[in-house]
Every structure is written in structure tokens, then in C-alpha cells.
Design a protein around this nucleic acid. Structure first.
Lengths: 342, 342
DNA sequence: GGCAAAACGTAGAGCGATCTACATTCGCTG
DNA sequence: CAGCGAATGTAGATCGCTCTACGTTTTGCC
């Protein structure tokens, strides 16, 4: 007990060492009004000497924890690494800390992860969960500022930052059409049932694909394949394509809803030695690799991640009207898209 | 104030609703001794009804937070995604929560991130930071259980789980030697100065490379290149190789210290159209992609991640003697290694 | 039936910060 | 040099939970 350094120093210890009251130390910490230069100095020295660090828990009990939380559905997806990079970047210089909660294995929906974050008393949450209901999010947003990533529902209880998936998809479709493809298949994720999810990026990409095909008079070529969220993409792609080739139903181009999927398709195409164009979405780093050269859409993940943090900080500092921002994607044309073989 | 649902329910509210004392509710929560079935029932109902969730902060102030922390130096590296996957997997079924702290942008060393985690009052920390000093870690370990990932220093203040980098490297070198390569270059990371870091995975890979070259009588072929940690790997690889080719000093094979590096080298080789074998380390998912087919070493990241969590939980539950475990890696031979051209 | 032991439940003191309300001192001005 | 506002500092309640130390019932057993 009496051994020095036995226990971490508390504000009490600092106050004693500096010969002031706890409240005074607290003021210095928060650089609140009413601290003389001399006191700031003495307290600062004491803090230094005792290696004092304020307890986040104790702080959280009375207000803010200076911690923001972000929920990530799938950290295996490099797109989220970009987002995280932007987020951490936006945080340097502030005294806020970022903690990440991974959506529980086998349950990517995200309720659990967001709840865990709120339980941690974070001052604000960034969520990626496209599948949680709006009502639920709004109930969370009553107590904790929320910024949602990639959702296209414009609630006024929380902010959103999203890519313009419609525009990105149209860029892809036009590119394929211009190359001469009519027979474009869309490969997307098969999510769990959930009514009214027109707000998810994948849903927007799907509906835009459908519209683009119809509007350009290619209705009869519409074909959509779905793969389970946690299925083995590579295995699925291989089986699917082998089958399509065998039955003569292979498309001339495939638009995959995201790059992980597109890479799996590209792998299958390579193995089978067929000539099918592929486009992905997200522009993960590997897409630019010379061995891969995948045509994709750059969603500006890093910028969006940074902006999400900024918006959250604004909320934490008191903004109450919702803000919704959209980022313009860029089509990156590379080697996996060519004109269909004669 | 009086509006119901205005504020989150506290244990007090639950106690009132169930007609028992706060202490009784707390007992139910922790399923401690001395709770009758009837009481458990009533309290459970009250909790349900009020959507009560215990405050992590308040708990942390008096003991444990039921939260574990993991520090990740670079979430862009898919190897860590594997580790995380294993870690989250090992946590399901426990009532512990995992939070991730990213090493601050531009400072991958990890002091800040680990400190942040400790400040959060996590019950235990998993760190990847190979570069923080042992002394510092031991001071952290005085108060918070610590499991370090990939360190080869066997402190008895903290546990370690690491791959057998010596064995992995020897597997690589023997493979290359058997194919007929004498001229093997090692490309590794150029870390900030830090004395005595023979414990890092990369350092072990380097020294094992040197020894393998010497022991096999290839001392005159030893060549080591270093690239800055946050440099653009692809750009570096291209410049370096172009230069080597121009001056006729290109090796016949390159052993890259990890897959991200190996992929960059592979890209450069592809662009320059030269015939050089490449091996990486970590066996990231892309290594197995048909377009890439990179020979690499599977470090069992997922298993190690899971085991690290288990070890940490043991520590949290009271174990005090240190445990150090090593995992045996597997060489995955693929298309990027061939015999040197006659 | 009586009595000890087990079972069940409660009161109340902290944990480490923040923040309001208040006390004291200082610096000026008229 | 009295008097007043600004500047500086402090006391003490409070946040939500855990846990020790005790009371009060029940139960079991001879």
C-alpha cells in the first residue's frame, strides 16, 4: 500500500505533490478558467513526476470519455483499412482516442459491436452497419452522437457519409456498354432478410445496375448472382463460372459489388482461362497491382473516414442538425475490362 | 428528469423496479452467491424491461471492465486481419469485449496505442509492438496483464506468442537453394534506431538469412536492402530493381521480409519483365490468388490470435508465471519461385 | 421443538474524476 | 485608502457500480 508506484497515481496524489486541491489539478487538466501560470507549472511538474494519467473510467462517469468508437464489419476487407487510416489521421492533434469494435464473428450485422461501444461510454460512434434498422439507430442516437458510413437513408437523428453508389455504378455500366458488352452479370452479396434496406450501398448498386440495363434496352440480359456473406468467395466464383461456361450461359462481363468479390471472380476467370471482363468496387490497393490490374471504382475511403470523424467531433461539440454528405467516386479503368471477343 | 427513458437506466432503477436493493441486483449481475431463484427472476425481468445495461465505466472504477485491448500497428496489413479474426473468435462465449487501438498514424511504434488501452482500464492488453522496450512493457505489465505478439524476448513479466521465424526463414532459404539460387537478396524493413531489438520477427528473419547464406558458403552473395516503414513499397521496388538490372547486379531471387513487400517486388518484376524468384512471409490471402501465386510462409496468424486471447484470459483470471509459445510455420510453395534461368 | 448453519438480503463505503458554489486575494480606480 | 470586480483557489456532492460486513429468515437435524 505504502510502496510508491504500487498503484497508479490519482488526481489526489498529484494535488498533494503540487500542494493544491484536487479541483485545481482538474482545472489544469481541462485547462479551464482560473489557473495562474505558476500553478499550471507546479501541477504540470507533479503530473510529470508521478506519471499521472487521468482515469478514463472516472471521467466517463461524469461526462465525457474522450473516446470515439468505430464499428467495423469486416476488417479483412482492405477498404475498411483505408477508412480507418483516414479516421486515425483526422484524430491526431485532438485529445480524442479511437477504439474499434469488430462486429462479432459470424454476426456482421453490427448490433453487438455498436452496443459494446456505447457501453464503453464512448462520446460518439461511427458505424458501418448497413443492416441495422433505422429505428434502432435512432434510439442509440438519442444518447450518443452517431455518424453512419455508407448508408443512404437520411435520418435526421444521425449524420451519414457515403459514396455516390449510383454514380459509381453508372460509370461502370457505361464503361462496359461502351466497350461493347451487352451481357453483363451482377454479382452481389446475399444478405439476411431485412425489409426496407434500400439504403445499403449494395442495394443501390444492384438497383442502379437493373435500371441501367433496362434503360439501355438490355433487359433480357439482366442476370444477378448472389453469394453468401461469409461464404468462400473464391470457391463460389469457380463453381459458378465453371457451370456457366459448361451451360454456355457465361456473360461477357461481370460487375462485382465489391473488390473482394471481383478478385475472386478474376481468380476463377484466370483458372478457367476464359475471356470475361470484370469490374469491382472500392479500388482496394491490390487492384492497382500489375499482376491484377482490376478495373474498379475508387470510393475515396480514406477521405470519407476522415470526414466521418470530423462530423462526429462536431456532433460531440454540440451540433444537433443532421448532416449528410456524399462523395463522388472515380472509375479506375485497368486491364480487366476489354471489348468482348468478336 | 422525470421523463421515462430520458436517461439510461441505472442499477438503482432496476432495484426499485424489482423491489430489491442495489446490492441484490449487483449480485444477480455477477451471479454471485446468495440469490434465490425468485429474486433472480424478478431482477431479470426488471433488467429486461428497462433495457438496463451496466455501465462499463462505473465497473472499471472498482475492478474490472470486462474489456480486453489489442494494439495493431498497421491494419492495412492483411496478416493482422487474420490475427484479429482469431482473436474475436476466441472471445465468443465469454463476456469479454475486444477493443482495438490503432498505432497512431506515422508512429507505428506503439507506445501511444498501448497507453491508450491501459487508460481505458482494459483488463488485459495484447500488443504487437515489436519496437517498444522490454523495460517499458514490464512496467505496464506490473498493473495490467500483457501478452505480446511476435516478440522473441522471453520476459517473465508478460507472455508471448510468436511464430518460429528462424524455422520459417530456413524453409525459405533451403527451398531457394534447392532450386539452384545462390544469389538471394533479402529485402527488409528499415526501422528506427533502437538498440537491442534482436527480438523482432524481422530481425530474426534477417539474421537467419545471413546465417543460412554463410553456413552454405554463399557469403559473397549476401545482399540486404532496406525500405522505410512507411515508404511507398511499390515505388521503391521498381526503382531498386530497375537500377539493379541496369547495373547488372540483380539477384536471381529475393526473399522479402513480409508479403506486402513481396507483392511490391512481384509487381516491379512484372513491370520490368525480368525473371526473378520472390518469396514472402505471412501468407496473406492474396498470395494464393491465381493471378499472384506467391510463395510464402504461413505463420498461422489466426491460431496465434486466438491463443493470445486465451493466454490473456488466463492471466486475467490469475495466472502469474509467464508462458511463451511458438508456432510452427509452413512454407507454401507457389508460382513465384522457380529455378534460375540457365 | 430448539438451535446452529446455511441461505438470502441490505446498508454503506469507496473507486477517481468533474463541476458548481463559494471563499479568498489581488489590482485598480476614484 | 475604501471598495469592487476580476482572478485564483477550495470544499464537497456526485456519477453507477462492487463488495465487505452485517442483519434476518429458512432449513436441517437430533
Amino acid at each position: 500500500m505504502a510502496k510508491p508506484g504500487e498503484r497508479a497515481a490519482t488526481i489526489e496524489d498529484v494535488a498533494r505533490a503540487a500542494g493544491v486541491s484536487r479541483a485545481a489539478v482538474s482545472k489544469v487538466l481541462r485547462n479551464a478558467y482560473g489557473v495562474s501560470e505558476g500553478m499550471r507549472q507546479r501541477v504540470g511538474d507533479a503530473i510529470e513526476e508521478l506519471h499521472y494519467r487521468p482515469s478514463v473510467a472516472a471521467r466517463a462517469m461524469r461526462g465525457s470519455s474522450f473516446t470515439l468508437g468505430i464499428e467495423i464489419p469486416d476488417f479483412g476487407n482492405p477498404f475498411f483499412a483505408k477508412v480507418l487510416l483516414g479516421a486515425t489521421g483526422a484524430l491526431v492533434g485532438t485529445n480524442y482516442q479511437l477504439i474499434i469494435a469488430p462486429a462479432e464473428a459470424g454476426n456482421r450485422v453490427g448490433y453487438r459491436a455498436i452496443e459494446a461501444l456505447v457501453d464503453q461510454q464512448v462520446d460518439g460512434v461511427i458505424g458501418v452497419a448497413p443492416l441495422v434498422t433505422r429505428e434502432w439507430l435512432e434510439s442509440i442516437a438519442e444518447r450518443t452522437p452517431v455518424v453512419m458510413f455508407g448508408r443512404h437513408d437520411l435520418s435526421d437523428a444521425y449524420d451519414t457519409v457515403a459514396g455516390d453508389d449510383e454514380r459509381g455504378t453508372l460509370a461502370i455500366m457505361n464503361h462496359l456498354f461502351e466497350l461493347g458488352h451487352d451481357d453483363v452479370l451482377h454479382l452481389t452479396i446475399d444478405v439476411v432478410e431485412s425489409e426496407q434496406r434500400s439504403h445499403t450501398p449494395h442495394e443501390v448498386r444492384l438497383s442502379t445496375y437493373l435500371r441501367a440495363m433496362e434503360d439501355s434496352g438490355r433487359s433480357e440480359h439482366i442476370r444477378v448472382a448472389k453469394v453468401g456473406d461469409s461464404e468462400d468467395f473464391a470457391g463460389f466464383a469457380l463453381r459458378f463460372l465453371r457451370d456457366a461456361v459448361a451451360t454456355g450461359t457465361a456473360p461477357t462481363a461481370i460487375f462485382a459489388a465489391h473488390d473482394e468479390l471481383a478478385l475472386a471472380v478474376l481468380g476463377a476467370i484466370t483458372e478457367l482461362g476464359v475471356d470475361i471482363s470484370v469490374v469491382g468496387y472500392d479500388d482496394v490497393p491490390m487492384a492497382a497491382h500489375p499482376k491484377v490490374s482490376l478495373t474498379s471504382v475508387d470510393q475515396k475511403g480514406q477521405e470519407m473516414g476522415g470526414r466521418a470523424i470530423e462530423m462526429l467531433l462536431e456532433r460531440v461539440q454540440g451540433r444537433t442538425e443532421a448532416v449528410h454528405e456524399t462523395y463522388q467516386p472515380d472509375l479506375m479503368v485497368r486491364g480487366t475490362t476489354r471489348a468482348p471477343r468478336g
